[in-house]
Computed example of a mutant assay.
Amino acid sequence: MKHIILACFVTVLFSCQNNAQANKNQEAVINAKPIEVPIKNGKAKAYFASGCFWCVEAIYESVKGVDEVINGYSGGHTKNPTYEASNTGKTGHAEAVEVIYDPKIVSFETLVDAYFGSQNVTQVNGQGNDRGSQYRSIIFFQNDAQKQIILKKKEALAKKLNAKIAAEVYPFQKFWVAEDYHQNYERLHPENSYIQNVSIPRLNRFKATFPKEFLKDSH
């Protein structure tokens, strides 16, 4: 019995050490200076994490002024994360999207409104049945102006709902593009059971409540 207890203690000890190391690395990410992505050919980029990126991709592609949405990983402390690695929860990354948009048509502020308007804002580490740190909600800012927009909207929403808003606020550092088979997933796989039962209903809930003047006729 003592051997079992000792073995368990050692396992927990090393587990705690590993987590402490991961937390230390993650703190460096959270406290880093944000990197600003320059506007190119009149198009800007914004980054969001809000559960499964298949769902979030479809949501942002329904917003006017959004040209393209790319699925990937961000917010972690490891390089070249993969789907399998991020799913372990050990890389610090969350499934995220890169939103390529025309700032003359849609503002960053509206994209943040779409973010909060398309999720369960109080659910920690996930959306619906997709649970784990890889599905946590994060909004990434590239400069102080964006940070202030995010914080003010988050604070206002918390007061309105009288609840704690789960979304974390990170300085943007790096976006890692996900594997090819994750791109345009909702559009290419409409027959997929997850798409039919989770992604499309989530998209429809968003479109039913978000101001129509900001939505495309189709996506």
Rank of each mutant, 00 (worst) to 15 (best):
A156D: 13
W176P: 01
D113T: 07
V124E: 12
L157G: 13
F140E: 00
A166N: 01
N87Y: 08
A114W: 01
T122V: 12
I150Y: 08
Q183M: 13
I105S: 12
A178H: 07
A114M: 07
F172C: 06
D180F: 03
S193W: 13
I100P: 02
P190W: 13
G128M: 04
V97W: 02
N125F: 09
E98K: 12
K104C: 04
V124C: 04
E109L: 00
A156L: 10
E168F: 11
E98L: 04
I149L: 05
K160H: 10
E109P: 09
N143T: 07
S133P: 02
Y115M: 06
A145N: 15
A178C: 08
Q196D: 02
N143E: 02
P103D: 03
L157C: 10
K147R: 15
G117F: 01
S133N: 08
R136V: 07
H182K: 14
I195D: 00
Q134H: 09
E186H: 13
N129H: 11
K147D: 00
N120H: 13
V124P: 03
I138N: 00
A96C: 06
Y101R: 05
A167Q: 09
K160T: 11
F175P: 06
Q173F: 07
Y181L: 08
S86P: 03
V106A: 10
N184P: 05
A163P: 12
E155F: 15
S193G: 00
S199F: 01
